[in-house]
Computed example of a mutant assay.
Amino acid sequence: MAKRILLYAVLAVGAFVSVFPYLLVVLTAFKTQAQLSGTAPWLPGLPPTADNLAKMLAGDFPRYLLNTAGMTALLTAGQLVFTTFAAYAFARLRFRGRDVLFWLFVATMMVPSAVTMIPLFLIMRELELINTWYGLLAPYVLGTPYGIFLMRQFFKTLPAGLEEAARIDGAGPLTVLVRVMLPLCRPALGTLAIITVISSWNSFLWPLIITSSDDTKVITVAIATLKQGIGVDYNLMMAGSLIALVPMVAVFVFFQKHIVRSVVLSGLK
């Protein structure tokens, strides 16, 4: 009993530390400037106000939300399609240099993304894709090493007999992939989709570098630009952060099982 009480106490402290920043976001978003400076950060402002949220929603912020949703949808669709094709080729098709090419591709996961930002920007500049949707999506829409690795490992766990039986019946590689393999890959596809949605929605550095106009601005960049030269309006920043947080909370509420499964697949497989 003592060990169990100690365990739950440690878990409660860890949960509080994890949730506390989000609590500050909510409390600050419903405070006025006077309440922000006159009360402790962890205490609510009384009476609470929704003026900060109304001000954000009355401006261009809904436009940035739509931009972010569009970017997330396109990146997720591209990841699911192109990553699946690449992973199936690496897992099932036989061609010279397959394993060497795969591990060289996966080795790029060890390179921090910040290192490749400047080369990517120079490439997009030469292609005249700066401040365009094409430049925003191009580096990631065709798949990522992590996604290909995840799907390849899942493909390799599927019985080879199913694929061989389909080929005996006259099915080609594309038919085998679409009609036999993909229905069995729903857990892995769901995992990849959730990971892509979360990472795309929270993407900041590349959109900040490649975009500059309101037509392509996403919410992370929009929240960062609320910092003015003479100070920071924390109320508006927290209101924007709260609005941006709501879709991710909804994703967590409705797809808890898939998120847990994504941790299991990515951590153990």
Rank of each mutant, 00 (worst) to 15 (best):
Q35M: 07
L65I: 11
G229D: 11
A15G: 15
R261S: 15
V251I: 15
Y64F: 15
R125L: 04
S241H: 05
L43M: 12
V19Q: 07
P62H: 12
V176P: 14
G190Y: 00
M248W: 05
F102M: 09
K257L: 07
L122T: 04
L104C: 13
G59H: 05
V260P: 01
R98H: 08
L205N: 05
F85M: 15
G172P: 15
Y140S: 13
I230C: 00
L6P: 00
L150D: 10
L57S: 08
G161D: 15
F105S: 10
L182M: 15
R63N: 11
F102W: 09
R98A: 14
F82T: 08
F121H: 15
L242G: 10
G70K: 13
N235P: 00
A224W: 08
T196P: 15
K257M: 13
Q228I: 09
A29E: 02
V141R: 05
T220S: 13
G143D: 04
A12K: 10
F95H: 06
G45P: 00
T76G: 08
I118L: 13
L101S: 15
L174G: 11
L65R: 01
A15M: 10
K227S: 12
S18I: 07
F154A: 13
V197W: 00
A9Q: 06
A171S: 14
L43E: 07
V26E: 10
F204P: 00
K227Q: 13
M110S: 07
F61A: 09
V176L: 05
A40F: 12
V106Y: 03
P207H: 02
F255E: 08
T83E: 13
V25D: 03
M110L: 15
S266V: 07
G45R: 06
T211I: 10
G267F: 04
R96H: 00
L65A: 06
L226M: 12
Y134D: 07
N52R: 12
G97A: 05
L158M: 13
G147M: 06
K31T: 06
A12R: 10
F61M: 08
